[in-house]
Amino acid sequence: MAARGHDTPGLRSPMLTVRHLSRAGLVEPVDLTVAAGEAVAVLGPSGSGKSLLLRAIADLDPNEGAVSLDGDARETMPAPRWRQKVAYLPAEPGWWAETARAHFPDAEAVRPLAERLDLPEDVLDRTIATLSTGERQRLALIRLLLQEPPVLLLDEPTSGLDQTSAAKVEEIIRERLATGCAILFATHDKAQAGRLAERCLKMAAGQLSEAAL
């Protein structure tokens, strides 16, 4: 089965396993695994289907295939439970309330990460509309990380950020890897893939293939 797949080499057991995942927009079914503590990059130009793949794994769009976490099939748990564990961060995160604070159940917990990511001190008191794209992107990352999901699906996590902020986000991603998170991230930046990932997949026109780092 793994012949065509993009599997974790070696002895590490896979944390996230994707088998024959198909959906509208993907040309052929996808097989891949990500091990605990492993980062896998999905490279490809925008519009190639990277987001479609991540959204399908998070079960946000209709899709077919066998997806499991530590051997537990996705269908065995309610979808909200699955998404709390296999957490997806879109490239343009959404907001459902006017102020930043309303998106966080525990405002105090936000502070340490907000400081590390150079967010302004009053960031939670601001309205979402007054935050820049980069500030919103970092805040959404914090929102996701505070739920401590074992698997992260990050869609262009640094696309709206300058180099300094991007480096800080990468540092936090590396820390999560060290604690055993499995991370699958989409990027169009080959250098970033090289800095973070152990393995790299390439998405082109809805087709996923193995790529060199």
């Binding site: 998070a58 946000l60 309610p78 909200p80 439970r81 998404r83 709390q84 957490a87 997806y88 961060l89 879109p90 343009e92 995160p93 959404g94 907001w95 459902w96 959404a140 929102r143 996701l144 739920q147």
Partner: peptide, 18 residues
């Protein structure tokens, strides 16, 4: 409000909350 609804869903809210 598509992105707002999906932001809640992606964080593990059920559909009625979102």
């Amino acid at each position: 409000e598509r992105t707002a609804i999906e932001a809640q869903l992606a964080l593990g809210a059920d559909r009625w909350t979102a």
